[in-house]
């Protein structure tokens, strides 16, 4: 599997270099654009990774395709916005509230809505989560109207004296601009991704989750309450978008469909990275973020998602288990 991954990476790199060298006049005028696409792609890719991680975890453990994932993110976006707007709570401080809040909401959804239909055919669960998404989106519409809102962080365009050096945000890297909210979102997203990896692979709860994912009956036999593990896992999945929602709020806008934009991307990231794989979600998120921005500059006039869908199809055709997925029996 490693070999294949490396081959794929080399192939992509070779194509990129070839394209750049053959179009060197292009390169002269567009280095900053290229640098910007690279930076923007990586930064948003970090957020995609975090959103996809939650989806991947729920799919890997519960075998449920959660269409309400984006809508849950919308809840977090609104929560973070309302905390800022009403109480002046900094969006990054509000992480301490949105993450537990979404965990609780996720637990509630799993316990009262999804657990009862765990044994039903997969399309029942799929429709159920789709229904939850529609309810959440329209509830937001009723409560907050469709008017998009947004905030500007007072310190987003500011100088930070870090002792050794000062950072004047938005900072420039090879002509590409790195805005503070996006940089924070990227770094916190990857940090939380690491924390979830540790949780799943280094703790007892994680061991129970992995056991419930691989062999539910076996796990049940050794005394693991699988239903409870399912509930907790869904809670963790929702907590991922709880974090992601608060992280994107300062540079996105707040509207009932704001989270849904991330839903479809997260699905593709999960398929690319491999269902249930956390490193897969991270690599997939970054690859999709980059692909999206590269499509924008190399395939003018197309939707940004064109390249993303091409990758999606290629993965389904040539590596249906995803980059980090295990081959199914």
């Amino acid at each position: 599997m490693r070999g294949r991954l490396r081959q794929a990476a080399w192939a992509v790199l070779a194509i990129l270099v070839a394209v750049i060298l053959t179009q060197s006049t292009w390169w002269d005028t567009n280095q900053t654009v290229f640098a910007q696409a690279l930076v923007s792609g990586l930064l948003i890719g970090g957020v995609y990774a975090l959103v996809a991680m939650g989806l991947s975890l729920v799919f890997g453990v519960l075998d449920i395709i959660n269409f309400a994932h984006g809508a849950l993110m919308t809840i977090a976006i609104y929560a973070s916005y309302l905390l800022f707007d009403n109480y002046g709570i900094d969006p990054y401080v509000s992480l301490l509230i949105t993450i537990p809040l979404l965990f609780v909401i996720g637990v509630g959804i799993q316990r009262f809505a999804i657990n009862p239909v765990m044994d039903a055919p997969i399309h029942n669960q799929l429709l159920l989560t789709l229904g939850i998404a529609i309810v959440i989106e329209n509830l937001a519409l009723v409560l907050f109207t469709g008017t998009p809102r947004s905030i500007e962080l007072a310190y987003a365009r500011n100088e930070f004296d870090l002792g050794l050096f000062t950072l004047d945000f938005p900072i420039k890297v090879f002509g590409a601009v790195v805005s503070l909210p996006k940089l924070i979102a990227f770094m916190v997203a990857l940090l939380l991704g690491g924390a979830i990896y540790v949780l799943i692979h280094r703790t007892q709860l994680g061991a129970a989750i992995r056991a419930a994912a691989q062999e539910p009956e076996g796990a049940e036999m050794v005394g693991i309450d699988v239903r409870r593990i399912y509930t907790i896992t869904f809670g963790i999945g929702a907590a991922c978008v709880g974090a992601a929602g608060a992280l994107v709020m300062p540079f996105l806008f707040v509207s009932p469909t704001a989270g849904a934009t991330f839903n479809i991307i997260a699905f593709i990231v999960v398929v690319l990275g491999g269902m249930g794989s956390i490193p897969g979600a991270v690599v997939g998120g970054l690859v999709i973020g980059l692909t999206q921005e590269m499509t924008q500059i190399f395939v003018p006039g197309s939707s940004k998602l064109l390249g993303v869908f091409v990758i999606f199809l290629a993965v389904l055709l040539f590596r249906p288990q995803g980059l980090f997925g295990k081959v199914q029996r």
């Binding site: 900053t32 654009v33 696409a37 805005s179 934009t261 924008q296």
Partner: peptide
């Protein structure tokens, strides 16, 4: 051109 209902960021487009 950009797809108005899908974009979450227009920095790359603006730098183009």
């Amino acid at each position: 051109p950009y797809p108005p209902f899908e974009v979450t960021d227009l920095t790359t487009e603006m730098s183009q």
